[in-house]
Amino acid sequence: MTAVESDKMTTNTSTLPHSRPALPRIVTDAMPVVVMAVGGLAAFWLFPNDLGLLTRILAAALFVMSLDMVLGYCGIATLGHAAMFGTGAYAAGIVAVNWVSDPLALLAVGGVAGGLIALATGALILHARGLTLLMLTIAVAQIVQEVANKARDWTGGSDGLSGIDPAPVLGLFRFDLYGRTSYLFALAVLIVGFLVARRIVRSPCGLACRGVREEPLRIAALGGSPRRYLVSMYAVAGVFAGIAGALTAITSGIVGLDSVGFSWSAEAMIMLVLGGTGRLYGAVIGTVAFMAIHHILASTDPFHWMLFIGLFLMGIVLFLPGGIASLSARVLPLVKGGR
């Protein structure tokens, strides 16, 4: 509010900052979907022996995307997002073992479970902000993990829940030994999930959540309740995380305590920061990058891979603060003639 800023007004009113000559919206909208579909299918042909890993990556990407809805769009700092993922995974797993084995129904079960736990815990903890909130999210995940650990009859406790044997997708596509169905199923779920999530973050509610992230007091001044927006989006993201958990349960056939673990929450955050927050597709990029590097390094140098992951992360944070996804925003203008 000083002279410097005041001066800006005089100059800027005549030379307004130009918005970049953008590609038509339909192109930019279709691009991530096309890349995901083509890339996903290419990986299917190129790495037929790694479909297990690739399927885990896809499910993780959906999970990280749901974290982006919370962290990137609402600004909720959370290290307990695995609570929703794990609840979805266990719910789908328990239902699959005892009652229903249709994979789409199981995804729905996971989504509902994830959404409900997010709604209940979100309503309890989202009055807090910053570090307090961070602590509370960790506490929630720890409680969920402990419940899963103690409820051995249902969850298998520390042995994990196994024996999940999903029926064929739509009654047509059997889950095969090589994981082909699993992979393609996960790819389809991820792409549909991306489209739905994008729709949501662009909705009026998504817009309001971005407002809460930036300036909650202003939202209140406009007559809105910041907390209601946060809780709604937290619950919606919980649905996505729950579906991601269910997808992991269906495609891997087991659910373990690590699916609710602290390190899973933390890794998801690392993947998101790596890829770039607030974009949704950044979550996919970050997950693919992190898990691929993790896999390659861990198999070539089992002793020092953590060090390289750490260096890689530091490099990204220092030199590409917007994450890998911000590369496109930086490189595209250069390609199009320096402006």
């Binding site: 729709r199 949501i200 909705s203 009026p204 509610c205 309001a208 927006y229 709604s232």
Partner: peptide, 9 residues
């Protein structure tokens, strides 16, 4: 109208 989740702004 801010709680519409699936509307396109």
């Amino acid at each position: 109208r801010t709680f519409r989740l699936f509307a396109n702004v």
